[in-house]
Design a protein around this nucleic acid. Structure first.
Lengths: 219, 219, 219, 219
DNA sequence: TATGAATGAGGGTTCATTCAT
DNA sequence: TATGAATGAACCCTCATTCAT
């Protein structure tokens, strides 16, 4: 009798925190920061509203935590990927693009969080995450890898490495942000799944042809 | 501008409607639909809040009107541009990209409205504007133009015209959505103004090299 | 061309006033004074909102006008009825009850206006209409007629004539206010039309048996 | 009463709920559903407006709760009364009428809530309370009791028991709805208190004479 | 007389946050 | 740590009424 009422959701701080964070991610992904409701988060997490404020300062603190929690693996994964390959070559470049595209494909909430960030926070100059350094590291490392490609001769030397990186990242992100739904609403009469693959091939093709040194071009 | 907050209660419905629409555009551009406040809109427009509901059904109706009012010239301009040139050639293609980029540059609120749409409405399947037909017409006409380019031989025949269109549109939109602030936060130590120009050159270069038939490539 | 735009709803004050009054009656009957909307009234009447205030002081003035306009024939009809019969007798008494019941049956909005008045205005001590005198005249005349009946010997002498009047009026009004729908929700499985008739017979029976002198009782 | 506006922010949910419900009852009794203001309710209850929505879905939910809370004892009391007397006789019938009249006299808000219901909700077909069953039970039991009276011989056999019940209920309710203020505005020059008593006597007299079998008539 | 734009005071309701328990 | 009642500032919208035309 003494523990029956207690045992339902008994003291498990870590589980509570995790549940809140997961619920918050779903909420913010679906509605953005402004549209996100703490009430819905608490309900989805199965905790009382007040508990949110034990683990996080306020709605904004919770949002930031979600961003970090969600984007950290994203950046870390890229860092790993960029560091893994010793000698950069053409295949690695293509492979990088494809793996990046695949990552967004497998983590659709990442793309949508980025969309919210572009619309809302980026304009106010708010950094993407509090550990901004990681994001910058990725970019610097990526640019460095491109520069190695230029040194090796298979990437055009007249291009700014940072912009090369940006070019393919933008195309991948944009595709997943618009969910295959071209801004100008096409409906090519094929499966959505195939469309993703077809777009990826198209994009890689155009990108490589645009970026690779003439003598190394695929076609 | 000196007479803006003037003698209200003087009859000028058109001016009122315009003022509301302009104020609403600024508000929704800055805060999105959910974050937009009708109170701020009314204040900025210099009209009582109740008047909004004389001209529009509700907040959503006002938002839709703003979208239409803002995007109509955008689409119409593109239609004109696509129709104007009689014989498509390489220069026209490059010119189109540059003009499109320039348009977004000159109308930054368009890019940001698109950003909100990507984050919020697009996911719910809401069409970009109520006159969806215009948007589709642009896309179809654009694709048709690319196809003419393929027939003329200067655009690669193995590419899907619709995806070619999407490729450069995405790059232009993405740049202006992120306001030059690469998602991965680069700061190349130069003026923002120059950065735009430099990115445009880079993008056009990569795009054309990727898309144009080998024998017509710029370099 | 000069009269085409004019002729639609050209100057016809009386028609406008009438249209407003009719629309207002429907509105107030359906929603009461507080729930009645001037906007709906104007719309139903086919006139702009502002015009209401040319014919009436304000919402309350319009409501009062409706009450008067609706209840005047009601009271005048009763006055006529009470004055018409020269010598009161038992049949006249029964006939009066039946005609009163019938009147409410034929004018359902009267019963509902009374319902609103009971709930809302009566409690605040507001008179039923501005020409309160007519209502009082009806009552006095009715009571006088009952007194004549007492003198003639067919109405019990120990009853207060005013209460006798009230007794049957209340029963008639209550029936039509509750629209046959007993307060305690019965559903006798018969036609609503028949129910009215059956109730009337019942009521008249009980009323006469209760009020008429023993030697004149119908059964 | 001295402690009513006290230390709020002290935990007592039951008291809060009760205070809201009581304040709401007064408000709705005085102004009906449409005219009732949640702001006034909150103020009278001594709670912030937002708290109403912690305990009730919305204004309508609060109204329904008030109806139920107010009418439940009304119906339950009648049920008890009808069940209590084992053998029905003439005195019991008269007693029932008098007790019902007295109940409405002692609970004036019940009569006025009924008045609002007649004017507003009944017409839209809305049930009197959510526990409609109780109301129907009262009616069925009442009719059953009258039927017993018919079997016992002291109630006229030619009358429909359900209508007999309705007859006296209507007279009681109507009197209290119009608060002794006859629809036709009588003012017999006596105290209001006495008037109630005198009307009750009159009504019981007429009713019994009308309903009771000839050989059992009081006079 | 007729019109409908303009006004501003609330109306019901939501919501992030605090706090006693 | 956990709970959910309590708080109050907005928020969107409605509505009776006024007034320039």
């Amino acid at each position: 009798m003494t523990e029956s009422r207690q045992s339902r959701r008994t003291r498990d701080p870590e589980r509570s925190r995790r549940a809140i964070l997961d619920a918050a991610r779903d909420e913010f992904v679906a509605h953005g920061f402004t549209g996100g409701r703490t009430g819905r988060i608490a309900e989805a997490a199965g905790v009382p509203q007040g508990l949110l404020y034990h683990y996080f300062d306020n709605k904004e603190g919770l949002f930031d935590a979600v961003m970090e929690d969600t984007l950290a693996p994203y950046f870390n994964g890229m860092l790993d990927m960029l560091q893994s390959a010793e000698v950069p070559d053409l295949d690695l470049l293509e492979d990088s693009v494809r793996r990046y595209f695949q990552f967004l494909h497998d983590n659709p909430h990442v793309a949508r969080l980025l969309a919210w960030w572009f619309a809302d926070q980026a304009w106010e100059g708010k950094p993407l995450t509090r550990k901004q350094g990681v994001a910058e590291a990725v970019e610097l490392l990526g640019a460095a890898r491109i520069r190695e490609g230029q040194d090796a001769g298979f990437v055009r030397r007249d291009l700014d490495p940072a912009l090369v990186i940006k070019t393919f990242i933008d195309m991948c992100v944009m595709w997943h942000m618009s969910k295959g739904r071209h801004m100008l609403h096409t409906a090519p009469g094929e499966e959505q799944a195939d469309l993703d693959a077809r777009y990826l091939d198209h994009m890689v093709d155009v990108f490589l042809n645009g970026v690779v040194a003439p003598e190394h071009r695929p076609r």
